[in-house]
Design a binder for these strands. Structure first.
Lengths: 100, 100
DNA sequence: ATATCATATTGACAAAATTTGATTTGATGT
DNA sequence: ACATCAAATCAAATTTTGTCAATATGATAT
């Protein structure tokens, strides 16, 4: 079974790798198919596929099949969730017993 | 030399590990010294020290020495920076040429 | 059915992250 | 100076990630 922290860690795992941040950068300009991404980044095809899977599983990127192509884009919903999660994880709990 | 993406990745590296999320959880209730954290989490002393270093280097946690104790707390500044960074990294670029 | 193209999956390997136990450092107390 | 405690650092062992090449899958076209 997956703990809540493990689930949360997955969201940020998407963002803790240089290559994946590069991919996000490419996606920021809009919808891209994998083949386009592949042209703009220095990794092999299977490696790209591996990273895209991590990005999609984090929820930050969504994919859409179109014929034999897979298109990717940044998910507004997913990004928004990630931002809220980060805010929650780092918010100091003002009702806690231990303020000094 | 460190690329910008590598620098950004470091911020999220702090958050992509289950144990570090647990530590953040403990810190949310207020300022804690390492020895207190150690009592509340199932890892060894050197391992905790390793994770604290990563958290501090990300900017999300700050440390303060007091005698022989090190106290840690979540940094408002650092958290805020991380949130802004995340927002930036996932914002879709509306002036881009490729909207469909 | 066969061929082709885009992408996903697999297994082997290399590289990076994490854990562990031992040792070191630095502050404090006697 | 010596002992003690908290935390950091180091080296070795282990685990997890990421890369590459090969292969599989699934859609499309002939």
């Amino acid at each position: 079974m997956e703990t809540l922290n493990e689930k949360h860690a997955k969201v940020f795992k998407a963002l803790c790798d240089e290559k994946r941040l590069h991919i996000l950068e490419l996606l920021r300009n809009g919808d891209n198919c994998a083949c386009e991404l592949l042209e703009n980044i220095d990794i092999g095809q299977s490696s790209l596929s591996y990273h895209m899977k991590i990005l999609v599983e984090s929820g930050i990127v969504e994919s859409r099949q179109e014929g034999k192509w897979t298109h990717y884009k940044i998910s507004e919903q997913g990004s928004s969730n990630a931002i809220h999660l980060l805010r929650e994880l780092t918010s100091t709990n003002c009702t806690g017993k231990k303020e000094n």
